[in-house]
């Protein structure tokens, strides 16, 4: 693209357009990053997921078990046009590209295994201020 424009408008114009494209890509990631941050802030539990992913289903099942008053806010990345960009932004933030990524009260809990582990250890219930009735 830049090469084609270079032939028509000279290299300076092509360079400017290439820089603009880079800028928009960078700002795209930045805007997705702010989307992730604002989403995480706005909800008690946020799951960044993909609808077909068995690991994501497993993480969602954990929260079903907890019978929360308010269901987790789920962002299905594969059902959004900007899913890849959100995933890139998430990757920059948490250092992992995989899904699910779970946030509780604005803090990153982790992936599927981390969520199950936190549930089984009772840590998740504590984070969500849920009374866990011990089976006597």
């Amino acid at each position: 693209m830049a090469a084609l424009l270079g032939r028509r408008f000279g290299m300076a114009a092509a360079a400017l357009i290439a820089l603009a494209a880079l800028g928009s890509a960078a700002s795209g990631t930045a805007s997705k990053s702010s989307f992730v941050k604002s989403t995480v802030k706005a909800h008690d539990v946020v799951i960044f997921s993909k609808s077909y992913c068995p690991y994501c289903r497993r993480a969602k099942a954990v929260f079903k078990e907890l019978e929360l008053k308010k269901e987790p806010y789920v962002v299905e990345l594969d059902q959004r046009e900007d899913g890849w960009e959100i995933q890139d932004a998430l990757s920059d933030m948490v250092g992992r590209r995989t899904v699910p990524q779970v946030f509780v009260h604005g803090k990153h809990l982790g992936g599927s295994d981390d969520t199950v582990e936190a549930y089984e250890s009772g840590k998740l219930a504590k984070l969500l201020n849920i009374d866990v009735k011990e089976d006597l």
């Binding site: 068995p54 690991y55 590209r97 995989t98 899904v99």
Partner: peptide, 16 residues
């Protein structure tokens, strides 16, 4: 599922 997760973790874009 593990393989899919690893591919994605390494930056490959999956389109199931």
């Amino acid at each position: 599922t593990v393989v899919a997760s690893n591919l994605e973790g390494r930056g490959i874009r999956l389109h199931p």
